[in-house]
Design a protein around this nucleic acid. Structure first.
Length: 271
DNA sequence: CGCTGACCCTGACGGC
DNA sequence: TGCCGTCAGGGTCAGC
């Protein structure tokens, strides 16, 4: 479900409530996720204090005293903050209960999410192989330009490649390409440095705006309080196939790129 | 090495 | 009303 702005919103929302709280109990009631939930390993978290809540790519990172807890929401995962006695819903996989009877409940119908635990000095290698954060200083047009030199796949695929830049999913890839007026189908290596500069600029802009809006621009987003997103019609192209372009009124078209549907304006985003 | 497509699941939705 | 096909914002892996 969530892309980077949504995960960032959840991360910020968890910081205040969880910081310095002691985890007293982890209750797993459905351990089938992308990887089986490590029920046994989770037991050793009991009694540990939450030092910080952070994010890397779309992973939420809860730093405890001796261990780190890694949560990925996959396509359909949600976290809610409630009391432990709140009625269980379908697909509620796990509860993380804290010393003040606060409960963080993980729900994931499609089971593409992950809950992982590891010792602090034992960071999983896959975190190291991730690309750079799109909102970091390291993410520049020059960086992208350098990365695309040998890539002939469509620029949209490159934008969504987590080994290059992390956290950019189908929606924000489409949106940033629209604002940069670049066709998602263009072979990456055909982009100029100017194209890359503009694309990175628009990508950052659209991500920042979404974070400012609290990640609520998505129709399926649920906040920590369980409130659905507004879906404020702020998306220029995503989900607007067949409707007219805000810029030139041309009918927006859909094309499948690397298995993901992509909406764009062939007038504003020439090939 | 780069890239595509299949796959892991359930639920929502549109067409008939 | 119900059944069926299609699609969904992510990530991994086999195979070309």
């Amino acid at each position: 479900m969530p892309e980077l702005p949504e995960v960032e919103t959840i991360c910020r929302g968890l910081q205040q409530p969880l910081q310095q709280k002691t985890l007293t109990q982890v209750a797993v009631r459905q351990d089938q996720l992308r990887y089986k939930v490590p029920t046994v390993a989770l037991k050793r978290l009991n009694g540990q204090v939450v030092r910080s809540v952070g994010r890397r790519a779309k992973y939420l990172l809860l730093e405890l005293e001796d261990d780190n807890l890694l949560i990925h929401l996959g396509m359909s995962g949600t976290l809610r903050l409630l009391t432990p006695t709140t009625k269980i819903r379908k697909h509620d996989h796990a509860d993380f209960i804290f010393n003040d009877e606060l409960c963080m409940r993980f729900n994931d119908p499609r089971r593409f999410g992950m809950i992982l635990v590891f010792k602090k000095n034992d960071q999983p290698v896959f975190l190291d192989s991730l690309g750079i954060e799109p909102l970091s200083r390291a993410c520049t047009g020059g960086f992208l330009y350098e990365q695309i030199q040998r890539r002939k796949s469509p620029i949209k695929s490159v934008l969504m490649n987590n080994k290059i830049i992390v956290g950019v999913g189908n929606i924000y890839a489409a949106e940033s390409l629209f604002y940069a007026k670049i066709s998602p189908l263009r072979p990456a290596k055909n982009l100029s440095l100017d194209d890359c500069n503009l694309l990175v600029k628009e990508l950052k802009k659209v991500l920042r705006k979404a974070i400012q809006a609290g990640g609520t621009t998505l129709k399926d987003f649920y906040s920590l309080e369980g409130q659905p997103g507004y879906f404020t019609q702020k998306l220029a192209v995503y989900g607007r196939e067949g409707q007219s372009c805000w810029c030139c009124q041309t009918r927006l078209i859909k094309s499948v790129i690397a298995g993901r549907s992509t909406v764009f304006c062939c007038q504003c985003q020439p090939f």
